[in-house]
Design a protein around this nucleic acid. Structure first.
Length: 194
DNA sequence: CTTTGGATCGTCT
DNA sequence: GACGATCCAAAGG
């Protein structure tokens, strides 16, 4: 289980540090292979760019919490908050490589055709791990709702893949998406370091 | 393999 | 009233 200090820092600094950590929920486990940094008030693409609101409140509640939001009328996505209470930055979990509880993930994602499709997207991994709005605000340091991030001894990539963020129309040029180079479980967007 | 359009609704303007 | 930090199926090469 990672200490709170692990999550504290600028999102662009914390994001690559999260690569190769393991998201665990009970019998389910998956290695984090892709993330994106969202820098709050300084980032027009961040939900917190225009300040606090009902939806983004968790982003303002301090490092180590899970910020879960609903989008496109049907999908949940999860972020790890990384700034002190009162400010708002977070790292979007974009893809994980299934490690354990894979059968349950298949059951949670009947649309998936290949193992690669189980959690290779921000809404897909939430489906695979049954993460919903009920999990918004969960404290990963305390293991709220069985959700934790752990270090299994695998270090982050010495040189992570870097690219612009996916699916946004402003701030999409900032190199704030990070991934494990060459890992097939990475979502849409570049998979290899250029 | 790539491209395209539909689904679907809470949030903020 | 418009628009998403997306996903999927279908159609075309």
């Amino acid at each position: 289980m990672l200490a709170r200090s692990f999550y504290a820092g600028d999102a662009v600094e914390v994001a690559p540090r999260l690569l190769n950590k393991v998201l665990v929920r009970g019998p389910l486990a998956g290695r984090v292979v892709e993330v994106e940094a969202y820098r709050g008030q300084e980032d027009p693409a961040s939900h917190a760019f225009r300040g606090r609101s009902k939806r983004n409140a968790t982003m303002f509640e301090g490092p180590g919490r899970l910020y879960v939001y609903f989008t496109y009328g049907m999908h949940w996505c999860a972020n790890v908050v990384c700034r002190p209470a009162g400010t708002a930055q977070a790292v979007l979990l974009r893809a994980v490589a299934p490690m354990a509880g894979v059968e349950a993930m298949w059951a949670a994602r009947p649309r998936a055709r290949r193992e690669l499709d189980l959690a290779n997207g921000p809404a897909k991994l939430c489906q695979a791990f049954a993460v919903t709005g009920a999990d918004d605000g969960a404290d990963l340091v305390l293991g709220d709702r069985s959700l934790v991030l752990v270090d299994d001894g695998t270090p982050p990539p010495a040189r992570p893949g870097v690219s612009g963020r996916v699916g946004i129309t402003v701030g999409d040029k900032e190199p704030w998406r990070f991934f494990v180079p060459g890992d097939r479980h990475v979502s849409r967007g570049p998979h290899v370091r250029t």
